[in-house]
Amino acid sequence: MTTSPTMHHPTHHQHWPVQREVVFVAYPQMGLLDLSGAQTVFWAASKALSQRGLPGYRLRTASLDGGLVNTAEGLAVDTCPLGELDLAAIDTLIVPGAPDICQTLDSHVELVAWLHRKAPTARRVASVCSGAFLLAKAGLLDGCRAATHWAMCDTLQQRFPALEVDADAIFIQQGAVWTSAGVTAGIDLALALVEADCGREVSMQAARELVVYLKRPGGQAQYSTLLQMQAQDSSVFDELHLWLAENLGDPELTVERLAEQAKMSLRNFSRVYKLNTGRTPAKAIELLRLEAAKRLLETSPRNIQQIARACGFADEERLRTTFQRHLSISPRDYRSRFTREG
C-alpha cells in the first residue's frame, strides 16, 4: 500500500474526565514482553492516577477473531475480536512485534488491511519492536522516521523505502505515530506516552513501580557506539577505534588523520571503512564524541562548555546541535535526567 492515511490529532488534555482506552492488537506468535511490558506501564500509571483521584487507562487486547492467541513464548493471551471494538472510543492503538515477522509479514494480509482502514481513527498509533513492519505494510509510516529492533533495521528499510529507519533510537514520535526499538523499549515507549498524557510525575511514579532504573529519552542509543562497531565485522578497525576513543578531545581530529592512523589513502580508507562498519568515518567520530559527552554529563561536575571542549566539539552550541539531532534533547536536559547520584 502506498497511500498513508491521515492521522487525527484531537486536542491534548493534561488531565481528562474519562478513562482513555488503550487497545493492544494481538496476533499469533507475537512477542509476549512487547505486549505485557507496555501494558504494565499503563496499569502502573492508572494506579498512580487513581491515587490522585483521576481516571486511569482502560486496557484491552484484541485480535482478528478474538479468543486465545498464542505468543512466540508459548503463553496464550485471551482477546476480544477487533470487530467488536468501538473505534471512536480508542485513544491509543498499540501493535506489538513478533520475532519471526520478517518471514511471516505477508501472511498478515487481513490484519494489515484492518490497520490501514481503522488505525487512523485512533488519536495515536504505536508499535513495539518489529510491530513497525505491520504499521509500514499498512502504509502508516510512509514519509516517517521509524524505530525497530536493531537487528531488523536494514530489513525494514529495504522492504519499505518510503520510510526512514533510525537504527539508534529507543523510540520515535512522528505526529500521531510512535515506533519503538526492541522488546523492553516498549516500556520506554509506554512511559513516554504516559508522560505525554499526564506529565512527568505520573510517568516517573509508573517507572518506579516497575523498578525501571532509568526512563530513557527516545534518542538514547540502543547500545553503545563502540560496542556496535566491535560487534560488526570490522575487526580490521578495532585498533583504530580504540585510538579514536582516546583522541576524541583533539579538535584537529579529521578523517584525514584517521586515514593516516590506519595507514591508508584517504579515498581507500573512506570506502573500506564504510564497507566494514556501515557508516562514514565522519559519522563515527561524531557518534563517539556524542557518547563521550553523554558519559561526562552523567558523571562529571564539569560545565557543559568544558565537556564540549573535552569531547572535541568546537563549542557548546555545536554540542547542543548534535544532541538535538541525535537525541531530541538538550545537553542540559540530558544531564538533569541522567546524573548518577550517590
Rank of each mutant, 00 (worst) to 15 (best):
A196I: 07
V177N: 10
D188A: 14
E195A: 14
D168T: 13
G182H: 05
G182V: 11
T179M: 04
G175L: 15
E195F: 12
A185D: 01
S180D: 04
I172Y: 01
L191S: 02
A196L: 10
L191Y: 00
A167M: 07
G175A: 15
G182M: 08
T179L: 04
G182Q: 04
G175T: 15
A196R: 07
E195H: 12
A190I: 11
G186A: 07
V177T: 15
D168G: 14
A196N: 07
G175D: 13
V194Y: 06
V183W: 01
A196D: 07
S180N: 05
D166V: 10
D168P: 08
T179N: 01
V177F: 14
A169C: 08
Q173A: 15
L193E: 02
I172W: 00
I170F: 02
E195D: 13
I172C: 04
I187K: 05
A192W: 00
I172Q: 01
A190G: 08
A167W: 01
V183H: 02
G186C: 06
I172E: 00
V177E: 11
A167F: 04
L191P: 03
D168A: 15
Q174F: 12
A176E: 08
A167S: 13
W178G: 10
F171I: 08
A176S: 15
I187W: 06
D166L: 13
A169L: 03
V194D: 06
L191E: 00
L189F: 03
S180W: 03
T179E: 01
A196E: 07
